[in-house]
Design a protein around this nucleic acid. Structure first.
Lengths: 217, 217
DNA sequence: AAATGCATGTAATTGGTTACATGATTTC
DNA sequence: GAAATCATGTAACCAATTACATGCATTT
């Protein structure tokens, strides 16, 4: 039940229609949230009956009317309370990592293909994000003003960027590891002509230490 | 609809009860998946009617009976197909990042408190994970064998670890940035006695470059 | 005496996705 | 001529969470 906070948060800054909110979700906020119009519209109605927001109709020519929402004092109270409330531990669902986890069921070539493909998908996302940052950065430099608003949204943006950068790097390093350990997938890996354990161990240790110190014997 | 694949993936390795599956989700697999028993049991029944798994009852003394599930050939086909299918772009929901995004609504002190608190939560998770890695690592070294199964699950573990490490680092660096820009939250920030724009700009540039090159003019 | 673990499930509710419905304007 | 954008919504369906229900054994 955090959709309401996503909406109230946005409305604490600007008045907006359901359609505007959806665009904001898909654009900047996509780093941490998403939703469908068919969920946003009913939620806005609920918020209105709870008197956390108000709306007014704005007729337009050639286009459908707009229903512009504004936040109320009650809404402001709700959102500030929520922002200051204890953060929850995120419950992750990363279906790609799950695929990786079960990739001993497919061939090495398929494994490498999947990792490369996903790396590409992530790279595309990163490129798009970089454009967003550059635009945001440009407008900040033009306006010559820094505000808490700008600061905190930049922090979120940076987090989004580095998340992509890191996932891409992980793909790269994992591809390398899999390629080095290719022979483990051989059907007759029991004949230990393939990859001696010690070698695999060293490769794995290097792979782990590239990201994080294991700090044990 | 990926819960079915989480279950089938596990059953492609060992026979298990719904209760076992839940424990595996909460333990190792928590890096990328989670679910409730009340969702797992019905899903297992569905999988059985679709003949992707079979079950047998094992009576026990003093404890309730066990319903142990095994994967069928059809189930194996389903899971291998899925593992090799095009990965989907993850739709993130990170409510903490959303809180951060809207933290211009609360005081600097509260902002710093929230970031520190969350850093602690993540640190705890990291510590737990490190124990898991060390145990896994120990048993690998004892058995002196490396398999695709072990390799791919280690890759996922490393991803989980580095995710935590990085989030913690981000918290740290963001706390530093916020502390350096504290005066922006002053009510009379209009009097530009507070933090000159150029200084803020430099701090921000440093903050971004610590994680990712902006590579523009 | 109370809480946790083992082990199964159902029922009710909320959250989220996909499909349907409308209709003018602009871009490809 | 088709697709996308603007702008609102409803209905049906699927996924996920919370609550309810049972019951014995062990740990605190």
């Amino acid at each position: 039940m955090t959709l309401r906070h996503a909406i109230l948060g946005l409305l604490s800054k600007w008045d907006a229609t359901g359609y505007d909110i959806k665009k904001e979700f898909d654009d900047f906020m996509s780093i941490f949230w998403h939703s469908h119009l068919s969920q946003i519209y009913p939620e806005l109605n609920k918020l209105e009956t709870e008197e956390l927001v108000t709306s007014r109709l704005i007729p337009q020519e050639g286009k459908p009317h707009k229903k512009v929402y504004s936040i109320t004092d009650g809404g402001i109270e709700e959102i500030t309370n929520w922002v200051g409330s204890p953060p929850e531990i995120p419950k992750i669902k990363d279906s790609f990592l799950m695929q990786v986890f079960f990739m001993d069921n497919i061939s090495v070539d398929q494994v490498i293909f999947q990792l490369k493909y996903y790396q590409g998908v992530r790279q595309k996302r990163l490129d798009e994000m970089k454009l967003t940052v550059q635009e945001a950065w440009k407008s900040i430099k033009e306006r010559q003003t820094m505000t808490p608003r700008l600061l905190m949204s930049s922090a979120v943006l940076r987090r989004g960027l580095e998340q992509e950068v890191q996932y891409i790097k992980w793909c790269e390093e994992t591809i390398q590891l899999v390629e080095a350990c290719k022979s483990l997938w051989d059907p007759d890996a029991s004949l230990d002509s393939v990859l001696p354990f010690e070698e695999a161990k060293d490769l794995m240790e290097e792979y782990f230490n590239a990201a994080v110190g294991l700090e044990e014997d």
